[in-house]
Design a protein around this nucleic acid. Sequence first.
RNA 1: GGGCGCUUAGCUCAGUUGGUUAGAGCAUCUCGUUUACACCGAGAGGGUCGGGGGUUCGAGUCCCUCAGCGCCCACCA
Length: 1033
Amino acid sequence: MTIPIRFEHAEAAAELIQAWDNAGCNHASVNPNKKPFSIVIPPPNVTGALHLGHGLNNTLQDIVVRTKRMQGFEALWMPGTDHAGIATQAVVERRLKELENKSRHDLGREALVERIWAWKDQYETRILSQLKRMGCSCDWQRTRFTLDPICAAAVRATFFDLFRQSLVYRGKRLVNWDTFLQTAVSDDEVFNETKKGHFYHIFYNVLSPKPGEPKRVEIATTRPETMLGDTAVAVHPDPATAFAKLESDARTKLAAATDKEKAECQAELDAIVQRRDRMLASLELLRDMAHDGRMLELPLAGRQIPLVADVWAKPEMGSGCVKITPAHDPNDYEVGLRCDLPMINILNPDGTINSEGGKYEGLTIAQSRKRVVEDLEAIGQLGDVEDRDIELPHSDRSKTPIEPFLADQWFVKMDTLAQSAMDAVTDERVKIFPERYRKGYLDWLGEKRDWPVSRQLWWGHRIPIWSLHGLSEAAATDLVARLRLLPAHSEGDVLDRIENAEDSTRSVVVCLRQENETLEREIEAMGLVRDPDVLDTWFSSALWPHSTLGWPAKTPELEYFYPTSTLITSRDIITLWVARMVLMGLNNVGQVPFREVFIHPKILDGQGETMSKSKGNGVDPIDVIDKFGPDAMRFGLARLATETQDVRMPVQYECPSCEKLIDQTPKNRSLPRIDCPHCGKPFSTQWAESDEDKLLIKGAVVSERFETARNFVNKLWNAARFALMNFDGYTSEPIDVASLPLEDRWVLSRLSTVTRQVTEAIQRYQFAEASGVLYNFAWDEFCSFYVEIAKPRLSDENQRPTAQRVMAHSLDTLLRLLHPITPFVTESIWKHLGDAAPIRGLDAPTAANPFVMTATWPESNAAHFDPTIERQFAEFQEVIGAIRKIRASQNIAPRETLPVAIHCSESSTQLLQPMRSYLEALAGAEVISLGPDANSFATDAPLAIPSIDITVHVDLEKFIDVQAELSRLEKLLGQLVKQITGKEQKLNNESFVSRAPTEVVDKERESLNELKQQHRTVQSDLQKLKLSTGPKS
RNA sequence: GGGCGCUUAGCUCAGUUGGUUAGAGCAUCUCGUUUACACCGAGAGGGUCGGGGGUUCGAGUCCCUCAGCGCCCACCA
């Protein structure tokens, strides 16, 4: 049998992906004979290609799915992608601007959406192919998209149902308004930028002040033009108590301050006290005026606005008075709600002042600010103007300033829904691992803030609401009556509602259950207009576990695979996504969407920053796969997936022209095109976006973590290759384990332990543990010892058949254990193994499954676990190590056979006796004597192994390097003295001896005795060496 | 400002309920082509466990505190 010396991953992977697919290995269907296991993929955004973070996320899911599949579950991994609302629309809009210098308004709604679909098709294809090349065993036939008809039906059914329950409602809300794109943007798409600005002090006159009352109040603002929308000025309702609290806080802080901070804290306290003394009386007066319902005159606008009492006005700030602009400031909005103030929107969607601004109508914000300030000054209402740095929110998309803007929005009422999702986690119907993430989930839901679900976008699920405003009560009733005559209404597909508007007109609002063009036209013919907004992306993502299974239809898949088994995701979307899936699952299906949630670490770049599209520091998994292979990528990532620590992944680019390595830096990371600093030639990675960059030759992305994993894959391949080269004449026969030689029983014992450890680790999502156990077992035990020891047996005619059978079985088990992590190399070897040893097993050899992927998961066979043999091997390994150390320290050539005498107890003798020949093979030693009577040699360099009370003596007659040995022994002596001193000190410590548990003390005593014994031996060896060699030199 | 993590070898990370001399991989150095593998084998050097304090017979591990880093949330007239 000829097998290449290297595992050709590219070829093998392409073939296997096809073969698994052809055999239907990935497909799961309702199977009453099996227990279901299901996972839904966190659908990647179609904004762009996957990076290594996705690589980790999907590798872990695949490990779990493959394991469960092998464990006999009907394992479904549901794949798909997310339309990602604003992010995708923004990407396409930006491209449109760059390439064609057009805005979305130039194209219009339909044409833009068409463009986005084209983009989606392109990236969905790319994403799915990335997943396939990573080896993900998704059920591709079921691939979903959050905007496809199946998901759309679920969205419509959900919205309709929430509407019926009155859990969706329309309300005013301040949104972050991007005046350039003329859309609301979400909070996380806003960044702050510090700009130079001014802090304007303005006076509002008090209307007919009574004697003793101030004639005007002072307020201050960085945005004076917003005064046009002011509807009140607030003062604190209880300034005395507020000051008292401030003072007591400051005193507490002072008491706890270090000497360094004392002066500062004292100053703070003094300032508060002084301010109170100065201002309390006037603030209380203003408060009384507010309670009295006194009014102020709003300059320029010529309106009267009330003085109100609200805690938002902080007595310690400014004049203690604050202007309230509910329609253009989030906090003022809250005040407006609390004090029942009117909310005056002064802006048009394009950021200019609207008719509410009177003579300022039509001006931009900057223009109106200038004019308002000038006009205030002209009428003497302007106070000081201070220079100040101002943090201004900007839109991440257009890079222009955000204006808080009051707009009609749809909300989902959260109180009962949020509570249900909290309960599900509290009573552990949903278990979160690691547990610390529960807190964030519960805290966030605990706020029960209503969920604003409408977005002023074109890309997404359009809100299924039609409405007509400004009706009289009679007209509204009439319209509703006509709606109710529609056949669809009696079929329960139409819900209607009459709402009272602020101006006491009526609005008729209609919700439709499903898409129906005829019905929509009929409704529109009645004058109803469809809401232009779409739903928040997370609305459709929240349905993902049940929408993908066909809900609202009661499909057999939904019955069988729901609730899904586990969700594997990243921590930043616990609230946005996980929590909402739980509450929507409960609301729609009545059951939690998944029983367990595993939150995995994040992959950071070399600078410790998270990988993201916008930073450009992402690494395309395909670059890693091309260079190292999919198994190496998967193993490398799994090896890093520990419970507590995010993972730094410094990468380098390999120049395809000169093969030199280039570090990834903040400078070059965002460039798909890299100019090699060594040879000057340009190249790109798979990450290339522009057509120009895509034409460049591709350089590899290199990281040490993947190199290690690649080496491991190759090691496994070669161990298997060796075994297979020795499988000629393989026959199968039942094996009596008890009669097997020691090394066979050892490897079976180890396999039983390793199987248990790996099974448990994967069950507990300890992927680093699972891969670590397998790495160490496969490399250090299977390859370094078992295969080595098997060599002589495989060339011995009598021993060969048994050796082959146990080897075939062991390799078989190892491949199955490794398969979930490294599917390709294991499947490739499995095929070769199947050719060489088609029927294998211990008690009852059977024909192997054609694919390891669908083979059964190994059971940990407790009967094979033999602690005596494992101890025996541990001793054996120690002895080999000792001999190798001596050889290295004495510079003994590898070809030379070294005579050794092993001094050990009777029981160790029993253990080691059968291993004598292997000592020779593995350490180049000839065992002269073994046992309690083994003697030292005249020229010796003994090495003690105190933990198992064995001393290895070597005959150095032919090899002695006196100087080396003398210095080695002296160094050893020094170490021993140090340790002995430490122990003696410990044991002389009265409190240690009396308080520590007796076992610990006894152990220390014993260990001290051993050390002393060793010390004596080394000393005498040193003497002997000096004597025996002294005369010669 | 609140919450959650993190800080251990040059680098990337392990380290169970506190208990012998704190581990691994890579990198470095030395030796080596013994019929699977140089993507290999053997060995060596390398650590005040972020700083300070405390609890304890005993602290990388528990508590307090300071510093630095990361993420989430809130806020900034």
